[in-house]
Amino acid sequence: MPTMNGHQLTLKDLQPGDEARVLRCSGDGAVFQRLCEMGFVEGAPLRMVRYAPFGDPVEVELSHYHLSLRKAEAGMIEVERRAGEG
């Protein structure tokens, strides 16, 4: 996994079952705004649920609901693992 040291952890890097919290969304434009509106805001709890059978997109549980997004979009969401989990 291209994560860990020196590299900001994003939603894309999480494995199914991992729990995390949103730090911020990067980028701009319509996709960025949509992600914010859907609830990827600072502090929001989330859990990586699964990858689609062909590896993309991914399913995420965000603040009690499920949504799917592509890895390219998941890469825009910076996260931190929730303490003691993941």
Partner: peptide
């Protein structure tokens, strides 16, 4: 144009 966002709710 840019790829459409695929931010799709998976309803219960």
């Amino acid at each position: 144009g840019a790829k459409a966002p695929f931010v799709l709710e998976l309803p219960s």
